[in-house]
Nucleic acid binder design. Structure first.
Lengths: 219, 219
DNA sequence: ATAAAAATTTAGTTTTGTCTAAAATTTTAT
DNA sequence: ATAAAATTTTAGACAAAACTAAATTTTTAT
């Protein structure tokens, strides 16, 4: 079975939204795919008919096993290509997403197996996301970036993104170190700054740039 | 300006047919693109409206300068990807055409420039066809058709006339590839078949049709 | 409990690229 | 020169994937 680019993008988006733990709705999907809710409904029916989706009208939807399998394969392709773009072609890690969005729809199975081998079977992409293997299995990511931490969920700082004096000076000032347990209590979209709470301390603010250098283990 | 996959395939096909020197007609294009003449006419109008094609109904068509530029860019992408697939991913030279047909439609300019650099700016693809540079310029290789090769003069296979699986399968069977050095030891006027000698192998026969698809550099 | 709001779906169109069948034009062969 | 053949184009339809506007269902808030 093979699928259109549009179908693949829907499947992938449903997968990603479901991964984030949210209850996924027609509107969320429309937002992510930059389309209209009515268009989403049309596609949901099509995906249901192809047994990729469990869906009853007005009652929500989830990927079927087959749908999840297809999604994981697209994610695999996307992340392998990102790895190639950054580590072989020397793109910056922030430049590769859009290109991988196109490359992920190239259909050859053999191409991906050869690419995987060529890259020596990498386990994580340049953003730290795990790359599913040929059977859809992947390692659980141990660390997430502070910017990706869900509101009000506790996590332990496990790595910092650089060793620069400037960074360490700032972390010392804010009383953050490896092992610190914290949570995000608020996110400000104006400057993407975060309001952080560490137990026994008053909450404080950190900038997006700083958050980017902090990696945590969710608890 | 960017173009749909379908538009790109038409432009590329027109380019290739024109390269072969034939007078290109609606039917030829329909044949090559596995579609119907009526569909071709529809697309010709669209390409004319986009100034990619000089076209008057019933009077034939040719690529405009802009159309040729676009065609060369697609050819460039196709051949660079073929080079990558064969020389980096270790595909057989007969396996890569279909995959490159997909990869050639990935749109990022920067991707192709980085790939070109990564591959050290190759001048010829694995089938011996020249790879246009970023400005559409490519080396002309002085090659002659096997049917034109003088008796007993050595020449090196430098290109094949088509990428069809059938042809590549036959060449593989006969152990002929890009770089093979051979000479014609006899010509039979009955069917215009040729008796060929490759060093260290017993001589063998090839048909006129096959000879027509083989191009060589005299040594 | 019910009215208002939000989310979702339906109905009817649009665009792109394709098709078939028929008509128009050009080419070929007598 | 003209009839037959081949080629090309038009006309009208269709499928995929999107849209808008209106209707329906579910959720939320009083």
């Amino acid at each position: 079975m093979s699928f259109s680019v549009s179908e693949e993008n829907y499947i992938k988006s449903i997968y990603h939204l479901q991964q984030q733990g949210e209850v996924v709705g027609t509107n969320d999907l429309a937002g992510l795919l930059q389309t209209k809710p009515a268009s989403v409904t049309d596609m949901l029916k099509k995906l249901k008919a192809k047994n990729l989706l469990l869906y009853e009208r007005y009652q929500g939807f989830t990927l079927s096993n087959e749908g999840a399998r297809v999604a994981l394969n697209i994610v695999r392709k996307h992340r392998l290509w990102e790895y190639f773009l950054v580590h072989e072609l020397k793109f910056g890690w922030d430049e590769v997403h859009a290109i991988a969005e196109e490359l992920e729809h190239v259909s050859s199975k053999l191409l991906i197996e050869k690419l995987d081998k060529y890259l020596s079977y990498p386990k994580f992409d340049p953003h730290g996301d795990p790359i599913p293997d040929v059977n859809g299995k992947m390692e659980v990511r141990k660390q997430i970036n502070l910017n990706e931490l869900k509101l009000n969920s506790n996590a332990e700082v496990s790595a910092v993104g650089s060793q620069s004096t400037e960074l360490l000076e700032l972390l010392k000032h804010k009383n953050i170190g490896i092992g610190t347990v914290l949570k995000v209590v608020r996110k400000f979209s104006f400057d993407n700054s975060l309001e952080i709470k560490v137990k026994d301390f008053p909450s404080f603010s950190i900038s997006q740039q700083l958050a980017q250098t902090l990696f945590l283990k969710p608890l």
